[in-house]
Design a protein around this nucleic acid. Structure first.
Length: 800
RNA sequence: GCCGGUGUGUUGGAAUGGCAGACGAGGCGGACUCAAAAUCCGCUGCUGGCAACAGCGUGUGGGUUCAAGUCCCACCACCGGCACCA
């Protein structure tokens, strides 16, 4: 058959739409499957072949589920708030709303041309006021429950662009956009108290099916550590310095302390510090560095000793110096550490540079040359001396500290609170009013959505304020509580907000009274399978799990965890093997491939490129290979004949049904396609296949190349859509070969191959192997020490 | 520096501890054609050999095993992530 992809693809895309083929049915009797892909940011540059790979995996799985009789929800939407659109609006003067609508239209068109089986009746857009009404609603619920708070923090600020920058955009202390120097500016920051859920975010991982490396990354991000808080008193003053340590067992080895330059104790004791000038100078130096740079300086430790004050080691009673150093952060633990140079590499380096004492408390290393981080017997440690295990020493020390009231067991998380405001226009307005009398007052629920005001200029305000601060009609309002004049919050939410609950909205996208109907939520949740990029497995996934757990706690949803299963796809690299980027000029536009070869070729090639989870470079020659495969598949239609398929072919078909099915479940799409190619080669050798068997093949192809499959299915005289036809079943007995080939090895080297009946016993196999014309001469005159027979695999003679 | 991952032909990549290189791409040869493209058929890890065949071969060096790409130890290279996390 002549494969005219252009007419075929338009024809079937139209049919699917007319027949609402891929629309999910709420509350259906069928088993449900909710497949979720990370919705795209509708950028101005249009879609990328990487999007096709990201969606192509669950597309195949969702299509297979439909054919297996599931009620499938496979939705798509747009995560449309974000900086690139705002920057483009500033540059072009076009409103972000107009830019977003235009980009969404373009993405929609591209996605439809690829033939993805999304349920287009449920599309959502996070910038739609009917959507962000509920984003604001969830924020206010959190505010109500005390999970929203404000604090001042230092942020990276570009005085020239007048914007706050992420660490990523301010590397090396330079602004990514204008390259001027970044300063650290104190700012009011809105936080969500995500750490309140840290432990549940961790334990919840035991109940879900995520790829192991994804779980590990989330665990490391949450970063639970157990240890102890210890109070160090300051000599001659009634002041304590509290530290957190994971190694309370080494307390006798503490020879100095280090505190963050911003630590409040410095100002408290300023009149006792003899070298306050040096301290102030060091602080100013630190203020220039972003947190990013502070934490990237690996080699050279800097710091200043606080002259005039000393701390007292609570177990040894020794007076020890206190330093300030920028490698200690105010934001983690207590902002102060106890230093054990003998057994910690960073402390060792610092001690060597500043001439501090080094006292070993664990036997084993040579602290004259380097820190010893191994295990050993406790020494120089009073009541701990002689203890040989870290666990026992820690337990004893904690008991000792607790008894004397100078410390206690404690837990710390690396995870930081979630900074939740941005000084931007194109985001959800934070629905809070600042009243001089009542303080922070939430906008009443019945006034949601709080809409963005119309504006024409989106450049940031003076001093890095949100552009919204310039709109007086928006800023000036009355307090919802006391009715007096008040000011509206002008910051907006980060892009992460809308994507933290979008999978719930797909379930009931047009509901005006709730974020989604509770009965429908109960029917569809949890998401059965979530696929996306590795770059989102920490922040986006942890943020959205946090929101979902909160919604569970207030009774809005019925599951504790949102995602039952999570996988990730690898990148598509450019033809040059480098990451695709506009500046490298190696970006492949999916439209061009669809035009030149068709959507089915694009889909099949992308899934055939290599291991789905790994990065693989694009190859135009490889695309032609996929084209050749589909052409041959269509040509094989001409081999359909009246006579039955050969037994060998039937067996091959049943093996292929099994292989394609299990491979799809494991996301091994490349080998699934390879097995169909292999079968096609067999058909070309036989030049004959029965109609029924060809129909099986068409259905196996359908999830990958649905347009061609539909066309062939129709040519076979089938009435309904192939996309909704039953997934083929295989007959186990037909997949088992009566005769198997066994490799015969002598001392582990293959010397021959024998064909035996699969049921033949060990002795029978050995007899045939020994009498084989290649094997028997090689065994002659040798002593057989051992005979190994692994059924259906191998025979090995160990000889001398 | 720490954490995670990956190293297999010319190339993308296959291989529940059991015949390494499936299936593609590329190359070579043949058929068809006036010719080319397309298509179809065959060959294609390296070395030696006319051949049968032999030896070598999964980043490097060791080890476990009848048998290692696969498991263990040490190292090297590359990719990704990061928050000097006490």
């Amino acid at each position: 058959m002549k494969y005219d992809y252009k007419s075929i693809e338009t024809k079937w895309q139209k049919r699917w739409e007319e027949e609402h083929a891929f629309e999910a049915k709420d509350m259906s009797e069928k088993p449900k499957f909710y497949g979720l892909v990370e919705f795209p940011y509708p950028s101005g540059t249009g879609m990328h072949v990487g999007h096709i790979k990201a969606y192509g995996g669950l597309e195949v799985i969702s299509r297979k589920r439909r054919m297996q009789g599931y009620n499938v929800l496979f939705p798509i939407g747009f995560d449309a708030y974000g900086l690139p659109t705002e920057n483009s609006a500033i540059k072009t003067g076009i409103h972000p709303r107009a830019l977003t609508d235009r980009n969404i239209e373009r993405f929609t068109d591209q996605l439809k041309r690829v033939g993805f089986s999304f349920d287009w009746s449920r599309v959502i857009d996070t910038t739609d006021d009917a959507y962000y009404k509920w984003t604001q609603y969830i924020f206010l619920k959190m505010f109500e429950k005390g999970l929203v708070f404000r604090d001042t923090a230092f942020v990276n600020y570009c005085p020239s662009c007048k914007v706050v920058l992420s660490n990523e955009d301010s590397q090396g202390g330079k602004c990514d956009i204008c390259h001027s120097d970044i300063i650290q500016k104190s700012k009011d920051v809105w936080y969500l108290r995500i750490t309140a859920y840290a432990d549940r975010l961790l334990t919840g991982l035991d109940t879900v099916d995520y790829l192991p490396n994804i779980k590990l990354q989330q665990e490391n991000w949450i970063g639970k550590s157990t240890g102890a808080f210890v109070d160090f008193s300051i000599a001659d003053v009634d002041e304590k310095l509290r530290v957190y340590t994971t190694r309370p067992d080494t307390l006798f080895g503490v020879t100095f302390m280090v505190i963050a330059p911003e630590h409040p104790m410095i100002d408290k004791l300023a009149d006792r510090i003899a070298n306050m000038d040096a301290v102030v100078a060091y602080r100013e130096e630190c203020a220039k560095k972003s947190e990013f740079d502070r934490t990237q300086l690996v080699k050279d430790k800097t710091g200043v000793c606080l002259d005039g004050i000393t701390a007292i080691n609570p177990v040894s009673g020794k007076q020890i110096p206190i330093y300030i150093a920028d490698y200690v952060m105010m934001g983690y633990g207590t902002g102060a550490i106890m230093a054990v140079p003998a057994h910690d590499e960073r402390d060792y380096a610092f001690a060597k540079k500043f001439g501090a004492d080094i006292i070993p408390v664990i036997e084993g290393g040579d602290v004259a040359s380097e820190a010893y981080t191994g295990d050993g017997n406790m020494i120089n440690s009073g009541f701990l001396n002689g203890i040989s295990t870290k666990k026992e020493a820690i337990a004893k020390m904690i008991a000792h500290l607790e008894e004397r009231g100078i410390g206690e067991a404690g837990v710390q998380y690396k995870m930081k609170e979630w900074a939740f405001n941005r000084q931007r226009y194109w985001g959800e307005p934070i629905p809070i009013v600042h009243c001089p009398h009542c303080g922070m007052v939430p906008v009443p629920y019945d006034e949601l959505p709080l809409r963005l005001p119309e504006m024409k200029e989106f450049a940031p305000g003076e001093g890095g304020e949100s552009p919204l601060a310039k709109v007086e009609s928006y800023v000036n309002c009355t307090c919802p509580r006391c009715g007096k004049a008040a000011k509206r919050e002008t910051d907006t939410m980060p892009q992460w907000a809308g994507s933290s609950w979008y999978f719930l909205r797909y379930i009931d996208p047009h509901n005006e009274h709730a974020l989604a109907d509770p009965e429908k939520l109960k029917y569809w949740m949890p998401v059965d399978w979530y696929n996306g990029g590795m770059e989102h497995v920490t922040r986006h996934m942890i943020y959205s799990r946090f929101w979902h757990k909160f919604l569970y706690d207030i009774g809005e949803v019925n599951t504790d965890e949102p995602y039952a299963k999570r996988t990730a796809q690898g990148l598509i690299l450019g033809q040059d093997g480098e990451k695709m980027s506009k500046s490298r000029g190696n970006v492949v536009d999916p439209n061009e491939v669809v035009d030149a070869y068709g959507a089915d070729v694009l889909r099949t090639y992308i899934l055939f490129m290599g291991d789905y989870a790994s990065a693989a470079p694009w190859s135009d020659a490889g695309v032609r290979g996929a084209k050749r495969f589909l052409d041959r598949f269509a040509d094989a239609y001409d081999f359909i004949s009246e006579k039955p398929s050969s037994p060998a072919l039937i067996s091959a078909i049943h093996k292929t049904i099994r292989k394609v099915g299990t491979d799809i479940e494991e996301m091994k799409f490349n080998t699934a396609i390879a097995s169909m190619m292999g079968l096609l080669n067999t058909i070309f050798e036989e030049k004959s296949i029965a109609k029924e068997e060809y129909g099986i093949l068409v259905r196996l192809l359908c999830p990958f190349a649905p347009h061609l499959a539909e066309e062939l299915w129709e040519m076979l005289g089938e009435k309904g859509l192939c996309s909704l036809a039953a997934w083929p079943e295989y007959d186990e007995s037909l997949t088992v070969d009566q005769t198997v080939e066994l490799a015969v090895q002598i001392n582990g080297k293959v010397r021959g191959v024998i064909a035996v009946d699969k049921a033949l016993d060990r002795d029978g196999v050995l007899a045939i192997a020994k009498n084989d014309e290649k094997i028997s001469p090689l065994l002659a005159g040798k002593t057989i020490l051992k005979e190994i027979v692994v059924p259906q695999k191998i025979v090995n003679f160990v000889v001398k």
